[in-house]
Amino acid sequence: MAGLFMIELKGIRKAFNQGKHNEYWALDGIDLTIPAQQVTALKGPSGSGKTTLLTILGCLARPTEGRVRLKGEDISGLPERFLTEIRRKTFGFIFQQFNLVRGLSAIENIILPAYPEGQPRKDLLEKAEALLAGVNLGHRRDAKVEWLSGGEQQRVAICRALINDPAILIADEPTANLDTKLSKEFLGILEKLAGQGRTIILTSHDPLVVESSVVDRVVTLRDGRIVDQT
């Protein structure tokens, strides 16, 4: 897969409240290619369209205009059901607020994305335990997620993102809620995941992330447009 484009965006525009008095174009003509097996960071000030772009890259939202190609296949016009399947099988998400389901244990949260796949519970639990062990969190297996620290919650969110063994990882402001020590730990995990050959796309304000050696490519956005790619 190395050297190929994982995702290609062509002429992407995204409007909110289209046709209403408060119509707003969050993205305005984005052409972007995401190479496979690389770490791409999207940076830019608040309101620049980073998160909107990330939702389109991660099949969480459809563009108002333009084409999205995933591994060469145009997925822009696919119905919601197929997009969901692609999202589940191809992407793993790490949200800024972690978005874990409160009241469930760490391991129960991790196996959630695999439920629609219908794999036996025993296999899922084994896989989730291995993932937890990989981020040194095996001892917190049965702890309710609301009892975990911020760093632990993020590691559970990372395990959850990996349960379906996705080719692409999407992380929205992954260090926004972490201190420097935990942010560095996160970068360590990121490096490990990149080393496994996964494609990683993240948004960040944080210079610690954007300037890190783990990041292969930085895309800068402003007012819904790409202003720089390095």
């Binding site: 059901r81 999202r87 389901v101 994305p113 439920y115």
Partner: peptide, 19 residues
């Protein structure tokens, strides 16, 4: 609000509307 949030999470991580 908690239930709505959960439904959003489940959908984002790959649950279909049907599920």
């Amino acid at each position: 609000a908690e239930e709505k949030r959960e439904i959003g999470i489940l959908k984002a991580i790959g649950w279909e509307t049907n599920d």
